[in-house]
Design a protein around this nucleic acid. Structure first.
Lengths: 192, 192
DNA sequence: CACATATTAAACCGACCGGTCTAATATAAT
DNA sequence: ATTATATTAGACCGGTCGGTTTAATATGTG
């Protein structure tokens, strides 16, 4: 009971990959089906709510991938500023290599569907919240005030999402690299 | 010769508004036509390249709107940090009021189409470049080094684009407001 | 006026969309 | 073996998509 639905997993993984590359409307059900070699009947067996339901689970899956990506660095690097910086450098690297597609992980879907599908909007919101809390938590644990940690979480998330968008649009990871490079300057409370 | 094509303008303005609200695939030609009351024949008369050509001009139009939005503040506020801060506050206000739709001005289209339409990708890239140069120019004129001004331009643009995306996704302008509030801290070169 | 051109009008097209349906088939429990 | 159930298979549906076509109609110019 607990082990088999390989088909469902494959569907979610394929959808996750395609959605973060081409957004929601940019990916047809048939694209997902063809790429995964799964028949349409199976899709509607596992996802009676169709494309929207699949998308919601794909978003959750993408969220988890990113969570793991953040965790790996945060466990390795103690200083929160350095950890965030390394995280962004690693992101830039991943986008350059393209060994596996990064895309605009949640952003593409969020920007398309936030106003037309509540389930999808909520799923994206949840992902953003979780990532933000991870960033904030890192600063909190390092002794920053709750307020400051929360603010940093928002700023880091925003600058990363914006940086990915810029990098995709100009077909260069330079924006992300500049952002990573400037992180220590950005995340320093000034003392006048 | 120079005055009449009201129809073309109307098409561009309507497309600009709809695209920044719902992205590219989220808006059908028929939506634009119905909303502007213009027949399909006219669209293909003015835009023989169809939807893609119209989108490119709509992006240019959106770009110009934002340019004016930035200029207004930058002419009024001399200090670059304060000017950027006020710019973001104004943006948050505009999104809250919704007296006229803001959406995710270029981001929605860019994130959807960057990988599938070169003309659109280039148009978005151009818009981002121009905005970035405006930000950088403000700091350059205030005496910042060329390098620092350029870096600030990228960061400001990224944090704004990211902030808009977050605000749309959580249906609250709080992220943008936090970002605005933190701008002076972000854009201060630290002295250890 | 005649004539060329710019613009409007909408019926129409094939392609593809997400979604449904029914039947066949594999799998598991009894 | 006999059920019951989970899964596969893909033909099929109505609707909408962007785009094309052809004819009518303004509009401007000599």
């Amino acid at each position: 009971m607990t082990k088999k639905p390989n088909t469902k997993r494959m569907l979610i993984e394929t959808a996750s990959r395609l959605f973060r590359m081409r957004g929601y409307d940019g990916v047809g059900l048939n694209d997902i089906l063809k790429e995964s070699g799964i028949p349409k009947g199976s899709l509607y067996h596992y996802f009676p709510e169709g494309k929207e339901g699949l998308a919601v689970e794909a978003i959750r899956h993408t969220k988890e991938i990113v969570v793991g990506f953040i965790e790996e660095v945060f466990e390795r690097v103690e200083d929160p500023v350095k950890a965030v910086q390394e995280h962004i450098y690693k992101l830039a690297e991943a986008m350059r290599d393209e060994k596996e597609p990064v895309g605009f992980p949640i952003g593409a879907i969020a920007s398309e569907k936030h106003s037309t599908s509540e389930p999808i909007r909520k799923a994206c919101h949840l992902a953003f919240e979780e990532w933000k809390e991870m960033y904030a938590g890192k600063f909190l644990k390092a002794g920053y005030s709750e307020k400051q940690a929360e603010n940093f979480g928002i700023i880091i998330l925003a600058v990363i999402e914006g940086g990915i968008l810029l990098s995709l649009t100009c077909k260069s990871v330079k924006p992300l690299r500049v952002i990573a490079e400037q992180i220590p300057m950005l995340l320093t409370e000034k003392n006048e």
